[in-house]
Design a protein around this nucleic acid. Sequence first.
DNA 1: ACCCAGGGTCATA
DNA 2: TATGACCATGGG
Length: 226
Amino acid sequence: MQTHALISIYQGLLRQHGRQHWWPADSPFEVMIGAILVQNTAWSNVECAIENLKTANLMTPWAILDCNIQVLTAALKPSGYFNIKAQRLMSYCRWYTEQGQWSVLREYPTKQLRNALLSVKGIGPETADDILLYAFERPVFVIDAYTRRFFSRLQLIEGTESYDKLRERFENALYKEVTLFNEYHALIVRHSKDICARNPHCVSCILGADCPSEQSVRGNCSEINI
DNA sequence: ACCCAGGGTCATA
DNA sequence: TATGACCATGGG
């Protein structure tokens, strides 16, 4: 993976979209909840569910563990997969409180914390990395569907590589800085939703001046020079 | 009416 | 290891 290409793409995204200030949440625990609820789901739906949780006073792991599963399920309805996600929140909160919650977990080395997260049923590699990066502020590079599509259109990856292989490639090519990884992933998501989401041929729109968004929406984006 | 969204698990081959 | 079915709502 070429470091220079990744940096210039990042700079292009940042210039076009500005800082994203992720993750949109009031607390690290809310980040964790959001990371589980957003699995294969539009964020706008997750926002509704999080509002429901706040209204029902269910934004602490203890409140969730104590509540009726049907109450939890009802609150999660707008985010889809509500039966599964209610169970995933429960099992996550059980793990989280039994491990000693924030004050204990924050002391774990990143690798150990990642393995611990992956041991929870319902937490896969991407959700674990969302939590590591945006709640625990560890320098891990999140790989999601947008990231695969974006970089495979730029022909910098094949796209079918394993999750961990891709993650290591990006992490090895960049300075392991939390703020860089935070903004980079947020910018890829923002960019993908904003401009390229429904256009299979839009590979770029990265250098805003070369590829105005209106043009890209019509499918006429020019190839980017990295 | 379709398609997709900031995935993960489980059953099969 | 690698596909496929399943989970379910809301917006384009």
